[in-house]
Simulated scan of single mutants.
Amino acid sequence: MRKACELVGGLLLFEGLVGIVHELIGWFRLMALVRFLPFLDGYELYASIGLAVVGFIVVAVAEESGERPSGPLISGADRAPRE
């Protein structure tokens, strides 16, 4: 589930960034999918910013909810030598 969330979040983040670049510079004309949605006419930049923010949040939550080992992490270098 974590990998799927990271993939979806990454795609949302990518599409948001591509949409922002397209609206500001005009590049990535075919990759900016937000511009093909007729109900967002005139609000493509705001939708792209929102898409990038949502994608970043999904990736951050997926990373944070990853599997963690139970108990404290103690490496071998942190232990005192036995006498």
Rank of each mutant, 00 (worst) to 15 (best):
V54L: 11
R68D: 05
E83M: 15
V58I: 13
R68V: 09
L37N: 05
F28S: 00
V59P: 10
D41R: 12
V34D: 02
S48W: 04
A80Y: 14
H22L: 09
I49C: 09
G16S: 09
D41V: 03
Y46M: 03
R82I: 13
G50V: 04
M1Y: 08
A52C: 05
G71A: 03
Y43T: 02
S48H: 06
R79V: 08
A80V: 14
M1L: 07
V53Y: 04
R79G: 07
E64L: 15
G19C: 03
L51I: 02
F56Q: 02
R35T: 00
L51Y: 01
G9T: 07
V61T: 07
P81W: 13
E83Q: 13
C5A: 15
M31K: 06
S70I: 08
L33E: 03
P72T: 06
E63I: 06
G19H: 01
R29W: 15
Y43D: 01
I57K: 10
S70H: 12
P69K: 09
V59W: 10
F14R: 03
L12T: 02
R68I: 10
E23V: 11
L13N: 13
M31S: 07
I74R: 08
V61I: 10
S65Q: 15
L24F: 12
A77T: 10
L12R: 07
V54P: 00
L24R: 14
I49F: 11
L12Y: 11
G71D: 00
P81I: 10
L37T: 05
E67A: 15
V21D: 04
L51S: 04
E83S: 13
G71Y: 03
A52V: 02
V58C: 09
M1V: 04
G10W: 05
R29D: 09
A80S: 14
L30P: 01
E6D: 09
P72H: 12
L17G: 11
G50K: 08
G19S: 07
F28C: 00
